[in-house]
Simulated scan of single mutants.
Amino acid sequence: MQPALRVVVADDQDLVRTGLRMILDAHDGIEVVGEAVDGRDAVEMARRLRPDVCLFDIRMPRLDGIEATRLISGPDVAEPIPVVVITTFDLDEYVHGALRAGARGFLLKDAGPEMLVQAIRAAAAGDALIAPSITARLLEHFASATPVTSTEPRFPLTQREEEVVQRVSAGRTNAEIADDLHISLSTVKTHLASLTTKLGVRNRVEIAMWAHDTGRAKR
């Protein structure tokens, strides 16, 4: 039997933290090992406990979720800890920054227990999940306010990689991509690994953002 995934939850609202703990602890294979009430406590706790995944609110006192994410999961962190960001607003101006800071997922607080658990497990497995219902709107919102800085990849993408990029940008999971394209799950993972190398990105979240910046996002 595999050990339970260890999770640190950070939110300044007691009721929210209690609710998240109850949802996660109710699932086999997941254990909440710590709760933090602000960003500074969250970073300190994450560094001390080294959980498998951190679940951070985007708006917290002392240190917001973006900076907390950057400090434990950013590009300059030698041993990053996966972070899933949660927020009340699907067009929160801070979400884009959190994803750029290294977050492996983005969920609304009303996403539901199943989606929350999926996001935790995906992050722990090195994957990333953005609530499919808001992925396109989120990226479009920030693209309209942010200059395009992405460039074409150093090496051209294959037709299959282009198809994978489009589906990632639409918030599809690996299993859904495999089903759409009639390929195996391992083949999807191979394409994603190739894309991260070609695009110079770290995860599927950044693949989705690149797709939107370059006009490849699936409509």
Rank of each mutant, 00 (worst) to 15 (best):
V9M: 13
Q159G: 05
T18M: 15
I72F: 00
D64W: 05
D14N: 11
L5G: 00
I183Y: 11
E79C: 04
T196R: 15
Q118W: 02
Y94P: 00
R59I: 09
C54P: 04
F89V: 07
L157D: 02
D52T: 00
E152W: 12
G105K: 02
T196N: 05
G39Q: 08
E44R: 15
F142K: 06
V37G: 07
D110V: 08
A68G: 15
S184N: 08
T69V: 03
R62Y: 03
L20S: 01
V32M: 08
D14H: 06
A4C: 08
R70K: 08
L192N: 03
I58Y: 02
E206C: 06
P61C: 05
Q2V: 12
W210T: 00
F106C: 07
S150Y: 10
R40T: 10
D25N: 15
T197W: 04
M22H: 07
A217Y: 02
L157I: 10
L157S: 08
T88R: 10
K218I: 05
R6S: 14
V201R: 10
A143T: 05
H96E: 13
G200M: 10
T197E: 15
Q159L: 14
A143E: 13
L91D: 14
M115F: 06
P147Q: 11
D90C: 00
L55H: 04
T88D: 09
G126W: 10
R50N: 11
A68H: 02
A178N: 07
L107V: 06
Q166K: 14
G65S: 06
A178G: 15
G215E: 09
A136D: 12
M60S: 06
R50A: 13
V37C: 11
L71M: 12
F56I: 01
L20F: 05
N203M: 10
L15A: 11
A26T: 04
R6I: 04
E176V: 11
A98N: 11
S144P: 01
F56V: 05
P80S: 06
P3D: 15
Q159W: 08
V33G: 03
D12Q: 03
L107N: 03
P132N: 13
D213T: 07
L181N: 12
V188W: 01
H96M: 14
L192G: 11
D179N: 13
L5Q: 03
D76M: 09
E114K: 13
A46Q: 00
I86K: 00
L107E: 00
A175Y: 05
D92F: 06
V117T: 12
V201F: 01
V8L: 14
I120G: 00
S184I: 10
S133F: 09
L71E: 02
S133V: 12
V188F: 13
G215T: 07
R70A: 15
G19T: 03
T69S: 10
H212I: 00
A208L: 08
R204W: 03
T214P: 00
R104E: 08
D25G: 04
I177Q: 01
V8D: 02
L5R: 10
L116E: 01
R59D: 03
V117H: 02
R219E: 11
Y94N: 11
E152V: 06
Q2P: 15
N203R: 07
D12W: 09
G97I: 06
D41Q: 15
S150D: 15
L138V: 07
